[in-house]
Computed example of a mutant assay.
Amino acid sequence: MTNKPPEYCPHCGGELAAVDPPTVHRCEDCEEFAFYNPTPAARVAVVDGDELLLCEVGVPGVADTWETPGGRLEADEDPPVAAARELREETGLTVDPGALELFDARSYESVPDQYTTRLCYAVDRAATGGQLQAGAEPDGVRFWSAAAFADSGMALSDRQPAATRDLSWWLEGARATLDEA
């Protein structure tokens, strides 16, 4: 999957001029517009009491970094369906997409020049099935309390907005949404 700003016009191959960077560009030759939009992603906050399910980031050279299960939407895939798929692929847990409760949505630059619109869903552990086990991507999966995670020296991934790099943020937002549902 690519998610890079356009370098050339997708219509004629001409050079692009920035109109409203980083989103809108216009071809200097054919005058058509080229748009650069964020890639949609879905993440799942699985809450079990005062603990949150996290996946150890399986990226070479990145140690002691964790994030909630999730990933990019596939073409023609509804966000809750993508969230349920990613949860199953990364953790072995299954959930009915209808049981997921949206609790946060935001767009941000996940890595330089790559933008994401992330939809965060909450679900109680009791609403999931399957056996917890790391899938192909994460190095490990486990439930953490905010205190244990803080004491561990681990960190949440810096590929997400700074405001959401605190396990308490995830727990509080997910719990509040589940309590309202």
Rank of each mutant, 00 (worst) to 15 (best):
P138T: 09
E137H: 13
Y121K: 10
T39M: 13
P97F: 09
D78P: 03
Q114V: 10
R88P: 00
Y115V: 00
F35D: 09
N37C: 03
F103A: 01
V95F: 01
A127Q: 15
A105D: 07
F103R: 04
A136D: 15
E31C: 00
L54D: 02
R106N: 01
D48K: 11
V141E: 09
H25T: 08
P112G: 02
F103E: 00
D104L: 05
E89M: 11
N37W: 15
A34K: 02
A84T: 00
C30T: 11
A34I: 01
S107M: 11
V24T: 15
C120A: 13
G92R: 03
A99E: 13
Y121T: 08
D20E: 14
A84R: 01
Y115E: 01
P80I: 02
V59L: 14
T39C: 05
E90W: 04
A83T: 07
E32G: 01
A75V: 07
C30E: 11
V24H: 11
A83C: 08
G130K: 10
L102S: 11
R26Y: 00
V57L: 15
V95A: 15
V141T: 11
R88H: 13
R26Q: 14
E77P: 05
D96R: 08
A42K: 04
H25D: 07
A63V: 07
L119W: 14
L93I: 10
G70E: 06
A99Q: 13
V57P: 03
P22A: 06
D113M: 04
V46Q: 09
S145I: 00
L100Q: 06
E31S: 10
L54C: 03
C27I: 08
D64N: 14
F143R: 10
T23P: 00
L100M: 05
E56W: 01
V46F: 08
G129C: 09
Y121V: 06
D76K: 03
P40L: 13
E51A: 15
Q114E: 14
E74G: 04
T91V: 04
G130T: 09
G98M: 06
V141S: 08
Q131M: 12
A99W: 01
D29G: 00
A126Y: 06
F35V: 12
G129M: 13
R85V: 10
G135P: 09
V59K: 11
P112R: 12
V62I: 14
R106E: 11
